[in-house]
């Protein structure tokens, strides 16, 4: 049972009060992007054994979405951060590095063709 703290309302509660929403920071490429870029966004997932950035929603609380950095191998939670960012903030990365010396975030998945715009 995970114990999570919602970064919006500050409530700490058991996992059952929240709902997981899958891998975070997936980038959706807009019109003109290649099929590869779109398939990557739609279907392909990092699914790492270790540090994972993911989306959660405080469904039975304030209802808001947020981000979480968590280890899928130990279930350790490194920290939660707001939903409106496209990459984990420096302070979360610092927390992870402190617990996992040598760990570095994987480079963002690159689309196969140059995207024309973002949407």
């Amino acid at each position: 049972m995970l114990l999570l703290t919602c970064p919006h309302c500050g409530v700490s509660a058991e996992e059952t009060e929240f709902h997981p929403g899958g891998e975070a920071h997936l980038k959706r490429f807009g019109p003109g992007a290649s099929d590869d870029a779109f398939a990557g966004y739609m279907f392909e997932r990092a699914n790492p054994r270790g540090v994972h950035f993911e989306r959660w929603r405080h469904v039975f609380g304030c209802g808001k979405w947020f981000h979480l950095a968590r280890c899928t191998a130990s279930l350790e939670v490194f920290g939660a951060y707001p939903a409106d960012v496209t990459a984990p903030p420096e302070e979360i990365l610092a927390k992870i590095r402190a617990r996992r010396p040598g760990w570095e975030p994987a480079p963002a998945a690159k689309p196969a063709a140059k995207p024309e715009g973002d949407a």
């Binding site: 891998e23 990557g40 279907f43 392909e44 997932r45 990092a46 699914n47 790492p48 054994r49």
Partner: peptide
């Protein structure tokens, strides 16, 4: 369940989550 780990070793991603 370890498909993602092996895919990463080989350098591709899968439409799979564990």
């Amino acid at each position: 369940g370890h498909s993602g780990v092996l895919a990463e070793m080989a350098g591709f991603r899968l439409p799979v989550e564990s």
